[in-house]
Design a protein around this nucleic acid. Sequence first.
DNA 1: CTTGAATGAGACATCAATGTCTCACATGGG
DNA 2: CCCATGTGAGACATTGATGTCTCATTCAAG
Lengths: 198, 198
Amino acid sequence: MSHMGYGCLMAVDRDHVLRSAAALLTRKSTATMDEVAKAAGISRATLHRHFAGRDALVRALEALGIAECQAALAAARPDEGPAADAVRRLVAAIEPHAPLLAFLYTENQLFEGEEQNEGWAAMDERVAALFRRGQASGEFRIDLTPAWLTEALYGLLASAAWAVAEGRVAPKDFTHMIVELLLGGVRRPDAPARRKES
Amino acid sequence: MSHMGYGCLMAVDRDHVLRSAAALLTRKSTATMDEVAKAAGISRATLHRHFAGRDALVRALEALGIAECQAALAAARPDEGPAADAVRRLVAAIEPHAPLLAFLYTENQLFEGEEQNEGWAAMDERVAALFRRGQASGEFRIDLTPAWLTEALYGLLASAAWAVAEGRVAPKDFTHMIVELLLGGVRRPDAPARRKES
DNA sequence: CTTGAATGAGACATCAATGTCTCACATGGG
DNA sequence: CCCATGTGAGACATTGATGTCTCATTCAAG
């Protein structure tokens, strides 16, 4: 009787439900609780036993996304070696979680005045710190603020995730496309029409 | 009785309603028809006389966004001069409409299997053609596909619009940040840690 | 002034999603 | 075997948004 709480099996199931919900909501962000339940192979009643409601589910998804991104960030060792390489490692590490990130990125637009999970602020700060480090070391240009570069990275991750999901881009090019565009831009280094030279 | 405090002549034409709705839905994409009506200074009944329903409103908003973006595209003269300059003109021309574009960009994720407005395909093609032209002329690198560059441009526009809306970025830097990141990337051209370069 | 069109206010039914509940089943441990 | 727990299925009320309707008011044209 006494709540039994998060037993061994519960945690596994909960995680499976969460991942199924992430996969579904990534494709169809307006999916019903019923659809989420079916996608996870459970009934709506059981889904409700795991998550009090849709809001709780999204919050749990948000926590999952933050945890995965923070793990990816830690695995990318953002403080080691050239900042450019660290950015590449970071994108590569986040790649598997990009669809979930894309979902949360747009979902966050809905969190109007409501409280924002402070986990995002922590993520933002660590990513911004990476760009700041690159600027301090002279690797990165200093006329683009770290805050903007962080936002741009999220935007590119989300765009790439959608482009891949809709078949407009090959999945294998994911990391390359994002990193190359973010670091080097679209202009050829030795473009013939180069006009400014510093 | 009915104080009617609002202006005397509310001459609400369809365009004014559309722009108000765009401004509101950009900030709060889940706004109610009632909220949309209030934002436009009209009653829900009148709003319904202009647009059959929420779906029709969003479609009209989509048509407005497409029209504005196409106008911006035409004004940017994408076929004239260096492609890099054309990109800059394009971003500058779209800037005023970026919030609406950002709203539609995420809203389109919801148009699951439903029909996509072919206007977007036309936009995509013309933007991709600009990047293709830059590649053909040798200005742009060829290892990033025009389709991805088009997606990335949309993503950066949306990211920048949100960043500006949330005060994380100064509005005056909008065009500069997008264009510089897209064209030149974050890496300094003469970065000291440059490793791979022939 | 009279009339007609457009509007605002609000009532009302509808509909979809949600949250809560009960009940039957089945599975595993005592 | 018996029972407790978790589950699936489904009924049910609730909530919020929506679409439709009526009616009084306002404003401008005649």
